[in-house]
Write a protein that binds this DNA or RNA. Structure first.
Length: 223
DNA sequence: GACCAGGCACATC
DNA sequence: GATGTGCATGGT
C-alpha cells in the first residue's frame, strides 16, 4: 500500500468544492443516528426518512420506547424502509444491548474506539459499515466508513480492486488521511453524494466531475 | 418490468 | 475463505 499523498485528499477537496459542506448526519439526537444507520441498510435514505417521521410522530424514538413498543407495531412504523421484519428485530436488539449494558449511549461513549467497535459488532444486525457509521457520527471517532459507493468510486478510478475487503479499504483511507472525525464525516457524505449522481450507471460515470487527470494522474493500483 | 438503494446473516461449497 | 441467497419497500 502506498504511504502518503495518494491523492485522496485532493479528491475530497474536489467533491467538497462541487457539493459544498454536507452537514451529515441529518438527525436530532444520537439515537436517531443509530436508528437511521440500521434502517438505511441497503435502502434509500428517502424511505428511511418516512420511517423516522413515523417513529417521531408516535414518540418512540427513545431507548425505552423502542424497547417497550410491540415488535409488530414497530414493523408497521418502519415498513417503508423495507426488510421491516428483520430491521424491527435489529432495532430492538440494538436498544436492549445499549440499555442492558450501559443504560445510555452517553455512558457507552466512555469506551475507547476499539472496544466500542467490538461491542457494536456483537449486536445482531450491526455489521462493519453500520458499526463504523455509529462510531463516526454518534461517537465522533475518526473512523472511515466504507460503503458501496466508496468501493465503486475508488475502484473505478484505479485505487483498488472492487472486491478488496472492507478492512483493507478502511485502513487505506485512515492511513492516508489526518485522523479528524469532522473530515471523515464530510468525506463519507461527499462520496455518497458523488455516488448518487455519477456512479449508478457507467454512462453517468463518464460525466463525473472527478474525471480529470489532475486528480488521478498516477492512479495505477494503490493497494 | 428490471434495476437499484448510505447491508447483514446465514447456508453452502 | 469465497460465493450465493433471502430479506422488501419505493423510486427511476
Amino acid at each position: 500500500m502506498k504511504e502518503k499523498d495518494s491523492g485522496i485528499l485532493k479528491i475530497y477537496n474536489a467533491m467538497h468544492d462541487y457539493f459544498g459542506p454536507s452537514r451529515w448526519w441529518p438527525a436530532d439526537t444520537p439515537l436517531e443516528i443509530c436508528v437511521g444507520a440500521i434502517l438505511t441498510q441497503n435502502t434509500s435514505w428517502k424511505n428511511v426518512e418516512r420511517c423516522i417521521l413515523n417513529l417521531k410522530k408516535n414518540k418512540v424514538l427513545s431507548l425505552n420506547a423502542l424497547l417497550e413498543i410491540r415488535v409488530g407495531d414497530l414493523q408497521k412504523l418502519i415498513r417503508p424502509s423495507g426488510f421491516y421484519v428483520q430491521k424491527a428485530k435489529r432495532l430492538k436488539k440494538f436498544c436492549s444491548f445499549v440499555y442492558g449494558n450501559f443504560r445510555s449511549l452517553k455512558n457507552m461513549s466512555l469506551l475507547d474506539t476499539d472496544t466500542l467497535r467490538k461491542n457494536l459488532l456483537t449486536v445482531e444486525g450491526i455489521g462493519p459499515e453500520t458499526a463504523d457509521s455509529i462510531l463516526l457520527y454518534v461517537f465522533e471517532r475518526p473512523v472511515f466508513v466504507v460503503d458501496a459507493y466508496t468501493r465503486r468510486l475508488f475502484s473505478r478510478h484505479g485505487f483498488f480492486d472492487e472486491k478488496t475487503e472492507y478492512g483493507t479499504i478502511k485502513s487505506f483511507f485512515e492511513t492516508n488521511l489526518p485522523g479528524i472525525s469532522g473530515l471523515y464525516k464530510d468525506y463519507h457524505a461527499q462520496i455518497v453524494e458523488t455516488g448518487k449522481l455519477f456512479c449508478r450507471k457507467a454512462a453517468l460515470c463518464d460525466k463525473c466531475f472527478l474525471n480529470n487527470e489532475k486528480y488521478f494522474k498516477n492512479n495505477s493500483k494503490v493497494i
